[in-house]
Computed example of a mutant assay.
Amino acid sequence: MNSGIDLQGSFIQTLTDLGLSSEAAKALWIPIPMTLVLIASVVGVLVTVWLERKISAAAQQRIGPEYAGPLGVLQPVADGLKLVFKEDIIPAQADPWLFTLGPVLVVIPVILSYLIIPFGQNLLITDLDIGIFLWISISSIAPIGLLMAGYSSNNKYSLLGGLRAAAQSISYEIPLALSVLAVVMMSNSLSTIDIVQQQSGYGILGWNIWRQPIGFAIFWIAALAECERLPFDLPEAEEELVAGYQTEYAGMRFGLFYVGSYINLVLSALVVAILYLGGWE
């Protein structure tokens, strides 16, 4: 039994000893791991944004963010606060319901995918027997949100960006799923815990990257395409589509796209580590 279950049992037992019913104690426990995952993913976004800016600046022989905190570490926080307080605008001819629902459908599936990520041998929210299948299924919802955002903006550039995003995501999901299927067949399980434990026998030599080097390359390329990172940034294509499906978005609605993109980037890195790099091993 892992310590996550022990913590849950201790928490419920403590509240029960204080006079609460076991059902109420269980209900109070449910939001705690969800909140922790949300906080961890947002912190991961802030760190990733800062690293991306500093590494890009170093590669281009410039300084990058420097004045908001030491070495500019508070610049992502400043950007986030700006998006929170920025005026939220809905175009006059846009569909307000779809316009609002699009960013939500992009962010929520990515956050839900963290439920199956084992951060350590005893650090996970839930050990599902179909964890990998659940991740692939949930990730297929995001293209619907992108297409919805592009269509509802009533902007030709947004519509083209949404169509490109949906087409790209659907196209690269097929090789991504096939590369994952190879790992699943080797592990004989869809559980992320079982996949990591299957790689633990011979130390670094037991990692799946040595058994599936081509699958690792395919997965990494497909993951970059799913995250719309260079050179797979056609849905945004600032040179021709202004900003793609994000063109008409401002304020926190744009912030959801922004956060969702980087949360997905961190998630992809975690999944790569679990499938091919031995997980917590």
Rank of each mutant, 00 (worst) to 15 (best):
L124M: 11
I125R: 02
I125G: 09
I125H: 08
D127A: 15
L128I: 01
L128Q: 05
L128N: 08
I130W: 05
G131P: 11
G131W: 00
G131S: 13
G131H: 05
F133D: 05
F133W: 07
I136L: 14
I136V: 13
S137N: 09
S140I: 09
I141K: 06
I141P: 05
I141C: 04
A142R: 07
A142D: 00
A142S: 12
A142V: 09
G145S: 05
M148I: 07
A149Q: 02
A149N: 00
A149R: 00
A149G: 11
S152A: 15
S152L: 02
S153K: 01
S153H: 08
N154W: 08
N155L: 04
N155A: 02
K156M: 02
K156L: 05
Y157S: 10
S158P: 04
S158W: 00
L159H: 00
L159K: 03
L159S: 04
L160H: 05
G161T: 04
G161A: 12
G162E: 02
L163R: 04
R164T: 06
R164V: 07
A165F: 02
A165L: 01
A166P: 00
A166L: 07
Q168C: 04
Q168W: 00
S169R: 01
S169H: 06
I170N: 10
I170D: 03
Y172P: 07
E173R: 07
I174D: 02
P175D: 08
L176T: 01
L176Y: 02
L178T: 05
S179Y: 08
V180W: 04
A182G: 11
M185Y: 14
M185C: 10
M186H: 12
S187L: 02
N188K: 13
N188A: 12
N188G: 15
N188C: 07
N188E: 14
N188T: 11
S189Y: 09
S189R: 08
S189C: 06
S191M: 08
S191D: 11
S191K: 09
T192P: 07
I193L: 13
D194K: 13
I195P: 10
I195K: 10
V196F: 04
V196Q: 11
Q197M: 15
Q199E: 14
Q199K: 14
S200R: 14
Y202P: 01
Y202F: 15
Y202Q: 15
Y202A: 14
I204E: 14
L205M: 15
L205A: 14
G206Y: 03
N208K: 07
N208W: 03
N208E: 11
W210D: 03
Q212A: 13
Q212H: 14
Q212I: 03
P213W: 05
P213H: 07
I214D: 11
G215V: 09
G215N: 12
F216Q: 03
F216V: 02
I218S: 10
I218N: 11
F219S: 01
W220N: 05
A222E: 00
A223P: 03
A223N: 04
L224V: 12
A225Y: 07
E226V: 10
E226S: 10
C227D: 09
C227L: 09
